[in-house]
Design a protein around this nucleic acid. Structure first.
Lengths: 138, 138
DNA sequence: CTGCATGCAAAATGTTTGCACTCTA
DNA sequence: TAGAGTGCAAACATTTTGCATGCAG
Protein backbone atom coordinates (compact mmCIF):
# COMPACT_ATOMS: atom_id res chain seq x y z
CA UNK A 1 0.00 0.00 0.00
CA UNK A 2 1.11 3.50 -0.73
CA UNK A 3 0.12 6.18 1.67
CA UNK A 4 -2.56 5.07 4.05
CA UNK A 5 -2.60 8.62 5.41
CA UNK A 6 -6.33 8.89 5.04
CA UNK A 7 -6.83 5.17 5.31
CA UNK A 8 -5.07 5.15 8.62
CA UNK A 9 -7.41 7.88 9.78
CA UNK A 10 -10.38 5.88 8.61
CA UNK A 11 -9.20 2.77 10.34
CA UNK A 12 -8.50 4.88 13.38
CA UNK A 13 -11.99 6.32 13.41
CA UNK A 14 -13.42 2.87 12.90
CA UNK A 15 -11.46 1.55 15.83
CA UNK A 16 -12.39 4.58 17.91
CA UNK A 17 -16.07 3.97 17.36
CA UNK A 18 -15.58 0.45 18.61
CA UNK A 19 -18.81 -0.74 17.11
CA UNK A 20 -20.51 -1.35 13.82
CA UNK A 21 -20.86 1.84 11.84
CA UNK A 22 -21.94 2.46 8.29
CA UNK A 23 -19.79 4.39 5.83
CA UNK A 24 -21.91 7.52 5.96
CA UNK A 25 -21.92 7.49 9.72
CA UNK A 26 -18.17 7.14 9.89
CA UNK A 27 -17.71 9.82 7.27
CA UNK A 28 -19.93 12.26 9.15
CA UNK A 29 -18.09 11.50 12.35
CA UNK A 30 -14.70 12.10 10.76
CA UNK A 31 -15.85 15.35 9.21
CA UNK A 32 -17.22 16.42 12.57
CA UNK A 33 -13.83 15.54 14.02
CA UNK A 34 -12.12 17.96 11.67
CA UNK A 35 -10.96 15.51 9.03
CA UNK A 36 -10.96 16.59 5.41
CA UNK A 37 -12.11 13.43 3.76
CA UNK A 38 -14.57 12.39 1.10
CA UNK A 39 -17.39 9.93 1.31
CA UNK A 40 -15.94 7.98 -1.58
CA UNK A 41 -12.67 7.47 0.20
CA UNK A 42 -14.46 6.19 3.26
CA UNK A 43 -16.42 3.74 1.16
CA UNK A 44 -13.30 2.58 -0.62
CA UNK A 45 -11.23 2.27 2.51
CA UNK A 46 -13.95 0.38 4.31
CA UNK A 47 -14.39 -1.96 1.42
CA UNK A 48 -10.64 -2.50 1.21
CA UNK A 49 -10.48 -3.12 4.93
CA UNK A 50 -13.22 -5.71 4.70
CA UNK A 51 -11.64 -7.17 1.61
CA UNK A 52 -8.34 -7.54 3.36
CA UNK A 53 -10.02 -9.20 6.30
CA UNK A 54 -9.25 -6.36 8.67
CA UNK A 55 -12.88 -5.47 9.19
CA UNK A 56 -16.15 -7.24 9.71
CA UNK A 57 -19.07 -6.40 7.47
CA UNK A 58 -22.67 -6.88 8.40
CA UNK A 59 -25.90 -5.96 6.70
CA UNK A 60 -28.13 -4.04 9.04
CA UNK A 61 -31.87 -4.39 9.15
CA UNK A 62 -32.08 -1.43 6.79
CA UNK A 63 -29.94 -3.20 4.24
CA UNK A 64 -26.96 -0.95 4.85
CA UNK A 65 -23.44 -2.21 5.26
CA UNK A 66 -21.86 -1.64 8.65
CA UNK A 67 -18.20 -2.14 9.37
CA UNK A 68 -16.10 -2.79 12.40
CA UNK A 69 -12.46 -3.53 13.01
CA UNK A 70 -11.96 -7.23 13.39
CA UNK A 71 -9.43 -8.65 15.76
CA UNK A 72 -9.96 -12.32 15.18
CA UNK A 73 -11.24 -13.41 11.82
CA UNK A 74 -12.41 -16.70 13.26
CA UNK A 75 -15.86 -16.22 14.71
CA UNK A 76 -18.04 -13.64 13.02
CA UNK A 77 -21.01 -13.54 15.30
CA UNK A 78 -22.32 -10.47 17.00
CA UNK A 79 -25.05 -9.36 19.31
CA UNK A 80 -25.78 -5.86 18.15
CA UNK A 81 -27.77 -3.18 19.90
CA UNK A 82 -30.18 -1.73 17.40
CA UNK A 83 -30.16 1.61 19.19
CA UNK A 84 -26.59 2.49 20.07
CA UNK A 85 -24.81 0.03 17.82
CA UNK A 86 -22.80 -1.59 20.59
CA UNK A 87 -21.88 -5.07 19.53
CA UNK A 88 -20.94 -7.93 21.78
CA UNK A 89 -18.80 -10.62 20.28
CA UNK A 90 -20.10 -14.11 20.68
CA UNK A 91 -17.92 -17.20 20.99
CA UNK A 92 -20.63 -19.07 19.14
CA UNK A 93 -19.27 -22.53 19.52
CA UNK A 94 -22.78 -23.76 20.15
CA UNK A 95 -24.09 -21.79 17.21
CA UNK A 96 -21.50 -23.12 14.83
CA UNK A 97 -22.13 -26.63 15.96
CA UNK A 98 -25.82 -26.12 15.34
CA UNK A 99 -25.19 -24.58 11.93
CA UNK A 100 -22.88 -27.40 10.96
CA UNK A 101 -25.50 -29.85 12.10
CA UNK A 102 -28.43 -28.40 10.17
CA UNK A 103 -26.26 -27.77 7.11
CA UNK A 104 -25.24 -31.39 7.06
CA UNK A 105 -28.80 -32.48 7.67
CA UNK A 106 -30.05 -30.44 4.71
CA UNK A 107 -27.10 -31.17 2.48
CA UNK A 108 -25.99 -27.56 2.29
CA UNK A 109 -22.32 -26.84 1.77
CA UNK A 110 -20.13 -23.78 1.89
CA UNK A 111 -22.34 -22.38 4.58
CA UNK A 112 -21.48 -18.90 5.72
CA UNK A 113 -23.00 -18.24 9.06
CA UNK A 114 -22.62 -14.61 9.99
CA UNK A 115 -25.12 -14.40 12.78
CA UNK A 116 -26.06 -10.80 13.31
CA UNK A 117 -28.47 -10.74 16.17
CA UNK A 118 -30.17 -7.44 16.84
CA UNK A 119 -31.52 -6.51 20.22
CA UNK A 120 -31.49 -3.85 22.89
CA UNK A 121 -28.38 -3.65 25.01
CA UNK A 122 -28.50 -3.05 28.77
CA UNK A 123 -27.44 0.58 28.25
CA UNK A 124 -30.52 1.29 26.19
CA UNK A 125 -33.38 0.11 28.36
CA UNK A 126 -35.96 2.40 26.83
CA UNK A 127 -36.18 2.40 23.08
CA UNK A 128 -37.92 5.78 23.11
CA UNK A 129 -36.51 9.29 22.78
CA UNK A 130 -33.09 8.39 21.52
CA UNK A 131 -30.65 11.08 22.54
CA UNK A 132 -28.11 8.41 22.97
CA UNK A 133 -24.69 8.63 21.41
CA UNK A 134 -22.82 5.82 23.12
CA UNK A 135 -19.41 7.11 22.18
CA UNK A 136 -17.50 4.99 24.63
CA UNK A 137 -14.55 3.70 22.72
CA UNK A 138 -13.75 0.83 25.01
CA UNK B 1 -59.05 -4.49 2.75
CA UNK B 2 -60.73 -3.38 -0.40
CA UNK B 3 -59.86 -5.26 -3.53
CA UNK B 4 -56.93 -7.57 -3.13
CA UNK B 5 -57.28 -8.41 -6.82
CA UNK B 6 -53.69 -7.59 -7.54
CA UNK B 7 -52.60 -8.32 -4.01
CA UNK B 8 -53.99 -11.80 -4.25
CA UNK B 9 -52.02 -12.29 -7.44
CA UNK B 10 -48.88 -11.07 -5.72
CA UNK B 11 -49.36 -13.35 -2.78
CA UNK B 12 -50.08 -16.14 -5.24
CA UNK B 13 -46.88 -15.53 -7.14
CA UNK B 14 -44.98 -15.35 -3.90
CA UNK B 15 -46.40 -18.67 -2.80
CA UNK B 16 -45.75 -20.17 -6.21
CA UNK B 17 -42.10 -19.25 -6.05
CA UNK B 18 -41.87 -21.07 -2.76
CA UNK B 19 -38.66 -19.38 -1.79
CA UNK B 20 -37.23 -16.01 -0.93
CA UNK B 21 -37.59 -13.55 -3.78
CA UNK B 22 -36.96 -9.85 -3.96
CA UNK B 23 -39.62 -7.43 -5.16
CA UNK B 24 -38.03 -6.85 -8.54
CA UNK B 25 -37.66 -10.56 -9.10
CA UNK B 26 -41.28 -11.22 -8.26
CA UNK B 27 -42.41 -8.33 -10.40
CA UNK B 28 -40.44 -9.55 -13.39
CA UNK B 29 -41.79 -13.03 -12.88
CA UNK B 30 -45.38 -11.80 -12.75
CA UNK B 31 -44.93 -9.68 -15.85
CA UNK B 32 -43.42 -12.67 -17.59
CA UNK B 33 -46.46 -14.64 -16.48
CA UNK B 34 -48.76 -12.19 -18.23
CA UNK B 35 -49.76 -10.09 -15.25
CA UNK B 36 -50.32 -6.39 -15.75
CA UNK B 37 -48.84 -5.04 -12.57
CA UNK B 38 -46.50 -2.28 -11.50
CA UNK B 39 -43.32 -2.51 -9.53
CA UNK B 40 -44.71 -0.09 -6.96
CA UNK B 41 -47.68 -2.30 -6.28
CA UNK B 42 -45.44 -5.28 -5.75
CA UNK B 43 -43.33 -3.33 -3.32
CA UNK B 44 -46.38 -2.09 -1.45
CA UNK B 45 -48.07 -5.48 -1.36
CA UNK B 46 -44.92 -7.20 -0.19
CA UNK B 47 -44.41 -4.63 2.51
CA UNK B 48 -48.03 -4.96 3.59
CA UNK B 49 -47.73 -8.73 3.61
CA UNK B 50 -44.65 -8.57 5.80
CA UNK B 51 -46.29 -5.92 7.95
CA UNK B 52 -49.30 -8.12 8.49
CA UNK B 53 -47.11 -11.03 9.41
CA UNK B 54 -48.05 -13.04 6.35
CA UNK B 55 -44.58 -12.99 4.89
CA UNK B 56 -41.03 -13.34 6.10
CA UNK B 57 -38.51 -10.68 5.23
CA UNK B 58 -34.82 -11.22 5.04
CA UNK B 59 -31.96 -9.02 3.98
CA UNK B 60 -29.81 -10.74 1.44
CA UNK B 61 -26.06 -10.41 1.31
CA UNK B 62 -26.53 -7.66 -1.24
CA UNK B 63 -28.66 -5.68 1.13
CA UNK B 64 -31.87 -6.35 -0.77
CA UNK B 65 -35.09 -7.36 0.88
CA UNK B 66 -36.37 -10.80 0.00
CA UNK B 67 -39.84 -12.04 0.88
CA UNK B 68 -41.50 -15.37 1.30
CA UNK B 69 -44.92 -16.50 2.44
CA UNK B 70 -44.81 -17.48 6.04
CA UNK B 71 -46.91 -20.29 7.38
CA UNK B 72 -45.90 -20.22 10.99
CA UNK B 73 -44.77 -16.94 12.42
CA UNK B 74 -42.99 -18.72 15.23
CA UNK B 75 -39.54 -19.64 14.04
CA UNK B 76 -37.94 -17.33 11.53
CA UNK B 77 -34.81 -19.17 10.67
CA UNK B 78 -33.77 -20.25 7.22
CA UNK B 79 -30.98 -22.00 5.46
CA UNK B 80 -30.87 -20.29 2.11
CA UNK B 81 -29.09 -21.38 -1.02
CA UNK B 82 -27.19 -18.43 -2.35
CA UNK B 83 -27.45 -19.77 -5.90
CA UNK B 84 -31.00 -20.94 -6.49
CA UNK B 85 -32.67 -19.29 -3.53
CA UNK B 86 -34.12 -22.46 -2.10
CA UNK B 87 -34.70 -22.02 1.60
CA UNK B 88 -34.96 -24.76 4.16
CA UNK B 89 -36.87 -23.94 7.30
CA UNK B 90 -35.06 -24.65 10.50
CA UNK B 91 -36.74 -25.70 13.72
CA UNK B 92 -34.03 -23.80 15.54
CA UNK B 93 -34.86 -24.81 19.04
CA UNK B 94 -31.18 -25.14 19.75
CA UNK B 95 -30.47 -21.81 18.12
CA UNK B 96 -33.14 -20.01 20.08
CA UNK B 97 -31.90 -21.48 23.28
CA UNK B 98 -28.41 -20.33 22.44
CA UNK B 99 -29.65 -16.86 21.51
CA UNK B 100 -31.68 -16.58 24.69
CA UNK B 101 -28.64 -17.68 26.62
CA UNK B 102 -26.19 -15.19 25.15
CA UNK B 103 -28.77 -12.42 25.25
CA UNK B 104 -29.31 -12.98 28.92
CA UNK B 105 -25.60 -13.24 29.52
CA UNK B 106 -24.97 -9.89 27.82
CA UNK B 107 -28.08 -8.22 29.18
CA UNK B 108 -29.64 -7.69 25.79
CA UNK B 109 -33.41 -7.57 25.57
CA UNK B 110 -35.95 -7.58 22.78
CA UNK B 111 -33.63 -9.73 20.77
CA UNK B 112 -34.80 -10.50 17.29
CA UNK B 113 -32.98 -13.48 15.98
CA UNK B 114 -33.72 -13.94 12.31
CA UNK B 115 -30.94 -16.29 11.40
CA UNK B 116 -30.43 -16.19 7.69
CA UNK B 117 -27.76 -18.68 6.89
CA UNK B 118 -26.49 -18.67 3.34
CA UNK B 119 -24.92 -21.69 1.76
CA UNK B 120 -25.01 -23.96 -1.26
CA UNK B 121 -27.89 -26.40 -1.41
CA UNK B 122 -27.43 -30.02 -2.58
CA UNK B 123 -29.03 -29.13 -5.95
CA UNK B 124 -26.27 -26.64 -6.66
CA UNK B 125 -23.11 -28.67 -6.11
CA UNK B 126 -20.84 -26.56 -8.26
CA UNK B 127 -20.78 -22.88 -7.43
CA UNK B 128 -18.98 -22.12 -10.69
CA UNK B 129 -20.36 -21.14 -14.09
CA UNK B 130 -23.85 -20.42 -12.91
CA UNK B 131 -26.17 -20.83 -15.88
CA UNK B 132 -28.61 -21.93 -13.29
CA UNK B 133 -32.09 -20.52 -13.19
CA UNK B 134 -33.78 -22.88 -10.79
CA UNK B 135 -37.23 -21.90 -11.89
CA UNK B 136 -38.90 -24.87 -10.31
CA UNK B 137 -41.92 -23.46 -8.59
CA UNK B 138 -42.57 -26.43 -6.39
C1' DC C 1 -70.59 8.31 -5.24
C1' DT C 2 -66.65 7.43 -2.12
C1' DG C 3 -62.19 6.34 -1.55
C1' DC C 4 -58.66 3.09 -1.49
C1' DA C 5 -55.64 0.38 -4.53
C1' DT C 6 -52.92 0.99 -8.54
C1' DG C 7 -49.33 2.68 -11.73
C1' DC C 8 -46.22 5.87 -13.75
C1' DA C 9 -42.70 9.01 -12.88
C1' DA C 10 -39.84 11.36 -9.86
C1' DA C 11 -37.58 11.60 -5.47
C1' DA C 12 -34.80 9.72 -1.79
C1' DT C 13 -31.19 6.82 -0.28
C1' DG C 14 -27.05 4.06 -0.33
C1' DT C 15 -23.10 2.63 -3.07
C1' DT C 16 -19.96 2.53 -7.01
C1' DT C 17 -17.46 4.50 -10.92
C1' DG C 18 -15.13 8.15 -14.10
C1' DC C 19 -11.85 11.40 -14.27
C1' DA C 20 -8.80 14.96 -12.92
C1' DC C 21 -5.79 16.22 -9.20
C1' DT C 22 -2.75 15.62 -5.08
C1' DC C 23 0.66 13.83 -2.58
C1' DT C 24 3.80 10.20 -1.15
C1' DA C 25 7.57 6.94 -2.29
C1' DT D 1 8.81 11.82 -11.88
C1' DA D 2 5.52 8.06 -11.53
C1' DG D 3 1.53 6.38 -9.97
C1' DA D 4 -1.52 5.15 -6.39
C1' DG D 5 -4.74 7.61 -3.25
C1' DT D 6 -8.30 11.03 -3.15
C1' DG D 7 -12.49 13.83 -4.05
C1' DC D 8 -16.20 15.63 -6.67
C1' DA D 9 -19.92 14.62 -9.47
C1' DA D 10 -22.41 11.47 -12.00
C1' DA D 11 -23.96 6.87 -12.61
C1' DC D 12 -26.45 3.07 -10.72
C1' DA D 13 -29.59 0.12 -8.09
C1' DT D 14 -33.14 -0.31 -4.83
C1' DT D 15 -37.04 1.45 -2.45
C1' DT D 16 -40.40 5.12 -1.39
C1' DT D 17 -43.52 8.92 -2.45
C1' DG D 18 -46.66 12.23 -5.31
C1' DC D 19 -50.40 12.45 -7.97
C1' DA D 20 -53.94 11.17 -11.27
C1' DT D 21 -57.01 7.36 -12.26
C1' DG D 22 -59.77 3.09 -12.14
C1' DC D 23 -62.40 -0.10 -9.89
C1' DA D 24 -64.56 -2.26 -5.79
C1' DG D 25 -67.91 -1.47 -2.21
Amino acid sequence: MRVTTRQKAIRDALEASGRFVCAQDLHARMRAGGHRIGLTTVYRALRALADHGDADVIITEDGQRAYRVCGSSASHHHLICRWCGRAAELPATALERWVADVSLRHGYTGVCCAAEIFGTCPRCPEPAGRGHDAQETG
